[in-house]
């Protein structure tokens, strides 16, 4: 009576319950990762909000040049999101080389963003900003929060560039499929999305 049904060699859809989300596991995994990463960023942004609220004389050091630089960085990142979508679009039409080219453009834009960002950091470090030091003599926590939040974001950018590189290479060789292009794109858009909070909250709110 307890003999189970037996069958071999029939694919996933036939023998599995449908996922409530009807998406491949990889994409669901990516979404879950994004959810948890969003909580990570939220926690660190809340920490920033906490120390800022608790500080009476917060330093607002950003010159117009920094804000302009920030706008350029934002633009670069937004455009890179569109190029990711272009790569996905090409992949869906089975145009592998075109898709890989767009992924390459995304990587270049990502690296440009990182370069602009690091230039900004170097400028600030030259002025005397440190994790634990405020050259203007105000509360030291501006430096701490700025470097922590943007540093965490920068790590995500660099990881994203590496991930896109891996996907692009493997995709051009044919060992990965369109779904991977989409998943890495999801991650890239998420990094972009986080920047949409980091830019106003960390840059604009600290403009002179």
């Amino acid at each position: 009576m307890n003999e189970p049904e037996v069958a071999v060699g029939i694919d996933h859809e036939t023998w599995n319950e449908e996922s409530p989300y009807r998406i491949p596991s990889r994409k669901l995994g990516m979404w879950l990762f994004i959810l948890s990463d969003a909580v990570t960023f939220a926690a660190i942004l809340y920490a920033y909000a906490f120390v800022r609220l608790a500080t009476a004389n917060w330093t607002r050091p950003f010159e117009v040049s920094s804000i302009v630089n920030g706008v350029v960085m934002t633009t670069v990142l937004l455009v890179s999101s569109v190029t990711t979508l272009a790569a996905l679009d090409a992949a869906k039409h089975n145009q592998r080389s075109r898709s890989v080219t767009w992924l390459g453009v995304t990587m270049l834009l990502g690296m440009l963003f990182a370069a602009l960002h690091i230039r900004e950091w170097i400028k600030m470090i030259d002025k005397g900003w440190r994790l634990f030091q405020n050259p203007t003599g105000g509360p030291v926590l501006f430096g701490s929060t700025f470097f922590c939040i943007t540093g965490l974001h920068l790590m995500h950018i660099i990881a994203g560039v590496v991930a896109i590189a891996v996907v692009a290479i493997k995709y051009s060789r044919g060992s990965l499929d369109t779904g991977h292009v989409e998943s890495v794109g999801l991650y890239w858009h998420f990094v972009d999305l986080v920047w949409m909070f980091v830019f106003p909250l960390v840059y604009l709110m600290n403009a002179k």
């Binding site: 909580v39 990570t40 926690a43 926590l141 701490s144």
Partner: peptide, 25 residues
């Protein structure tokens, strides 16, 4: 766990920075 550990991770990182990099969160 997915949401809770995601909140502890940055807290621990900030603690490590407080201890080693001289920040004072």
């Amino acid at each position: 766990a997915l949401l809770a550990f995601a909140a502890l991770l940055p807290a621990c990182v900030l603690l490590i920075l407080d201890r080693t990099a001289g920040t004072s969160f």
